[in-house]
Design a binder for these strands. Structure first.
Lengths: 271, 271
DNA sequence: TGAATAGTGTCTTTGAGACAATATGCC
DNA sequence: GGCATATTGTCTCAAAGACACTATTCA
């Protein structure tokens, strides 16, 4: 064993086959496969997307309804196979555009973050699939419907996602955890907001993702004291959320990290 | 397009083949491949390990020398293929045991953290390899030599790793970044220490990984004030690092997170 | 005794949390 | 006016940073 990618590769059928590490069980040609018996074990690689937004003061997830077995009829995270010529990140962005129906331009500037990779042998009952999960944050958009297959993609409140297909519950939980944590020390929260937003909206993002109320004056002080987090939009443009005093508008600043961090109350995350 | 893992799977050659999503370019049977033309694109999946330790007040990395092309003779991170019946995490732990020559028991209790997955199409010149990278922290051990192939695994100071094979420089940099960040808000630093350690040793871990000196009294106060971070070892056992007053011994406590965090000085990470 | 490391105490500054008070809009 | 939201200000407490000082060991 030792180093992977160690031995030579032979081209077969226009497809690369690498030598596998010469382990103990060195049986070969189990059933007349066309592959070199010493070839690497083949996997399918997919991406899964945990696309989150804040709508109606709730955290919501973009889900698709499965039309085929297994898990037929169940909700699942959108995703798809990584193609031979693209990276997992490119695949994730492509799938996001396709699933949401958003323009490629919209999706292009979006913050897409690799979450982690799920590789349990039994995670797909049919075959060996390794999935690279990504998380994306979207502002509250009209509706995910748009082009083609997006028709069946739909926002579902985070706390109403029944059991999802495959290990997608786990992926979603991990995504939520990651986002909760990243709000503390990054400027990621603006990803949930439209280009121009009020501090109240930004605070609502925090409160929704964390599930705790925050003190408005203190939140305001903290955000404004962090250089580059948000910057005031010029002019007198203001916007109202309904009744009450109109709020000043801000947009995301150039900073990406928060120093010092904006820690959750209680010191410990609530389950 | 839509859900992955959506359509049926047909068994072929004892190997599962999933339908691929019916995309625009739906040509099939390109060159008489034995796979269903609608089959998933096959990938090799490997794990790469960024194994770090602190020796001689320096951050060091466990590297292996490549014996085969490409990158023959270059240093590389240890790693290997994921086997059909194991998860990437299991593969990482197995490879770690094999490469370091540590007992399976030692490796078993070790903190192994998934870093991220690297999937650029060109990252291995021979074939399509997706690699799941893991990070492990080890205390200052005698020498990585032990069984079998471990003979060629060796500690190399972090700042003396020339260009590594493949994209391993990138992986290593990401691992270092991740560890730097995690020291701030987790108790991970004890992973670099032997079962019993002095606060001076713990501080040295922080200073070495972060590359900045810390104030000893303040560090001490902070660590001791964090419940569950470390706990004093009973009795009067003390240990000396050379000359000077012997220091009290501590061991890792039950806590895993630091609240509030132990932030790096300067507010910004240094490159 | 002096060098080296361990450990204690204190002062200052910064920032978070609590919360009162004021401002501005809509009905 | 009355309600709702935005914004400013103040007071207090906890934690971080700086740093002086004491303690214990070895050469």
């Amino acid at each position: 064993m030792t180093t992977h990618q160690r031995q030579g590769v032979r081209e077969a059928d226009g497809r690369a086959a690498a030598a596998r590490d010469d382990e103990e069980d060195d049986q070969e040609g189990q059933d007349g496969q066309p592959y070199d018996p010493r070839a690497f074990p083949p996997f399918a690689v997919t991406v899964d997307l945990a696309v989150l937004t804040v709508r109606d003061s709730r955290l919501q997830v973009l889900l698709v309804r499965r039309g085929e077995s297994p898990y037929r009829g169940a909700w699942a995270l959108p995703g798809g196979f990584v193609r031979p010529e693209e990276s997992a990140g490119s695949a994730a962005r492509r799938e996001l555009a396709e699933e949401t129906g958003l323009g490629h331009d919209t999706v292009h500037g979006l913050h897409l973050e690799q979450l982690r990779t799920y590789s349990d042998p039994g995670r797909d009952p049919r075959m060996r699939v390794v999935s690279v999960a990504y998380t994306a944050l979207l502002p509250d958009l009209p509706e995910p419907r748009g082009g083609g297959d997006a028709a069946h993609a739909q926002w579902v409140p985070r706390d109403r996602t029944g059991p999802l297909a495959f290990d997608h519950d786990r992926i979603l939980a991990d995504a939520h955890d990651r986002i909760r944590a990243k709000l503390e020390y990054t400027c990621l929260a603006t990803g949930f907001c439209p280009p121009e937003f009020t501090l109240g909206e930004l605070q609502q993002v925090y409160e929704t993702v964390w599930g705790v109320p925050l003190d408005r004056p203190n939140f305001r002080r903290k955000v404004l004291a962090t250089p580059g987090f948000v910057e005031a939009v010029e002019g007198p443009p203001r916007r109202t959320g309904g009744r009450g005093k109109p709020a000043a508008l801000y947009r995301a600043g150039p900073a990406s990290a928060l120093h010092p961090p904006l820690l959750r109350p209680e010191g410990r995350p609530q389950p």
